[in-house]
Design a protein around this nucleic acid. Sequence first.
DNA 1: CATGAATGAGTCTTCATTCAT
DNA 2: AATGAATGAAGACTCATTCAT
Lengths: 207, 207, 207, 207
Amino acid sequence: MPKNTFIGLHAEKRRRIYEGLIEAFYVAGYEAVTVADIVKACRIPRGSFYMYFEDKFDAFLYVLKHAQEEKMTYINPLLKRLDREAFFDIYEALVKAGIDYAEDNPKLVKLWMRFYHSSNYRLDDYWRQFETQAIDILKGYLLKDQARGYIRPDVDLLALAKMLYHIQAIDIMERFAQGVKTEAILTSVRAFLDIIKFGIKEVSDEK
Amino acid sequence: MPKNTFIGLHAEKRRRIYEGLIEAFYVAGYEAVTVADIVKACRIPRGSFYMYFEDKFDAFLYVLKHAQEEKMTYINPLLKRLDREAFFDIYEALVKAGIDYAEDNPKLVKLWMRFYHSSNYRLDDYWRQFETQAIDILKGYLLKDQARGYIRPDVDLLALAKMLYHIQAIDIMERFAQGVKTEAILTSVRAFLDIIKFGIKEVSDEK
Amino acid sequence: MPKNTFIGLHAEKRRRIYEGLIEAFYVAGYEAVTVADIVKACRIPRGSFYMYFEDKFDAFLYVLKHAQEEKMTYINPLLKRLDREAFFDIYEALVKAGIDYAEDNPKLVKLWMRFYHSSNYRLDDYWRQFETQAIDILKGYLLKDQARGYIRPDVDLLALAKMLYHIQAIDIMERFAQGVKTEAILTSVRAFLDIIKFGIKEVSDEK
Amino acid sequence: MPKNTFIGLHAEKRRRIYEGLIEAFYVAGYEAVTVADIVKACRIPRGSFYMYFEDKFDAFLYVLKHAQEEKMTYINPLLKRLDREAFFDIYEALVKAGIDYAEDNPKLVKLWMRFYHSSNYRLDDYWRQFETQAIDILKGYLLKDQARGYIRPDVDLLALAKMLYHIQAIDIMERFAQGVKTEAILTSVRAFLDIIKFGIKEVSDEK
DNA sequence: CATGAATGAGTCTTCATTCAT
DNA sequence: AATGAATGAAGACTCATTCAT
């Protein structure tokens, strides 16, 4: 939704503004950041901001979408493996890719956390929509796995998809934002997967 | 942290203010609500607000804490059963108690969601602290279950506690806020528990 | 329409603000004056302006209405003579009273001219309403005169009322604003009345 | 005062711009219209506007003057009858011509009303000048009539000219703008003329 | 000359907090 | 202690005009 004036901008300047936006939102968060902060971080005149974006919300949405697109370039190669492999088997690799992306764009992760935690009702709508979509995609992959016999037929895939999504969205990203080392995060992910795969019940208890 | 002036208030007036605060925060959310909105909803003079609370943040924190205390009165009776029963076996009852509380205080749930999603950094700190504490308590209960042989010894209890916490915090409350019927939510909770208890792996696959 | 906060103000301060408003609107006119100009002229803080008035329009309307009320205190005594005398015979005295008021409130006259000439659509509505009402009142007086046989029965009183109104509104006030002496204005008024009373036709021409 | 760049423009484009200006000023009025509105209505680049006109005021003045010239083409034929006929006898025809022009250019009439009612001090000056000139011309015609014995020698012609001018400027045009039918307006004009010609005094009253 | 992007001063309005009564 | 009027520092957004291409 940035205006055409922004789209038509020299790639270099567009990049500078993109990074300025990240910096500004990163420092203060969506609610607290002012247009004055933003134009300072982007090194553009105040009027130009309104040439490029409708308002603060428009600019924030642009950052989120652009960041999401960038993230997909990390993840897409992995998704090609899905024909041959179970989704579950590449999940850890997916998390790893997410962390790689996070390491390359550390400020964006904090930004993402703030987005995830925004109380602005317009963002809330966008977010809910994004979440629903992401969970749906996950569910689609899991359905294939279930068809291939990798997952018990009676497992509720929506519940499963939500668990996987939230683990990724909240725990992994939050811990990354807190500075936890990649290896520690991956260990933690394996713990989650272990529970999800095998359950927590003492087997001797069952039979 | 409300001031002594507030503590010393007639219980009835204190209640009116508590409900006014809920109403005000419920309608507009923490960031957007103004002190003018608040004093109007509480039917107190503007000056009195600053007699009772440090500022908006202080008032919000008061609501959250007070609400939390109220919620515990729904949950405490269940926790007494923990001596005899496995935590896991009362988890569904706990969720049910949470939903009961939510049904008695519907505005608070929306408020809670907003709180959970607030991007204010002061709230963020409080929230992180609250979350850590809640997860710790959960982990404590699970530890007992593990000791009693209800949970496999190699299960990562921190991971498990986080999963249980987030399921409750995000999925259950969010769905309640969206108006999903109690029974549907409980069915969903059972699906989560099923996955966590027994895992998703096709058994024939294993052996 | 000023807020209660303004109504409740100390009479002295209210007067100061009233005069500040006149000064501000007088210097720049309704469209061009800024709230900054106004609060400076009134010697009140910027925030106070919004405590007292809804906005610039509200403040302007207050000035107009208050001025109108003041003007009526000059005119009311004359209207009492209407029982005994023809409206036409006191018209000159009415104009004189209007000029007296104008001499006591010279800035208001320029303000009035500006109001009369405002292109703001909200003012336009108010103005049209005011004008219609004033012409109606005039017409009422003329109707009595016609009934008493002072005016030819076939004279269109609405047309007459409009002529009298516009002479007063535009010519007299405009000339006063331009600094024309009272006596000269009254001479001019007599010329208008002469035409209206006796017509312009050369009598020998008629018969 | 448009710049030479505008004068040199293709007649067709000049016409398009003229009509765009009318549209823009018509919709929003002089004070409220922005240069952005104008260039949009004229379908010219923003930069071009400043190639053609000094500023908004210059453009507005151009419209008024151009409109006035157009209006004269409706009125000029009538003025030729003045050698043989009394001005007063063609006044109604003049008003009719004015209404004809208004019917052909309805937006301009509203524009004219707005102009007449503008509080902008630069327009005010222009307006006063225009008004003085128009009244002077009227007075010139009336002088001839008086010399020919159509008007009593003691009638104040300046007063008379003003009355005729204001009747035309305010009442006729305003009523047209309000959508009053031509025939009704002409009836009203006759009522004005009747008063002015014959006066309002009950003749029997006099002698 | 033509264009439309760039500029930043200027405007209204809101609001948390203080303070006089 | 209780009240609600007073305060002025921000903040978002607009817009006439300039200027680089």
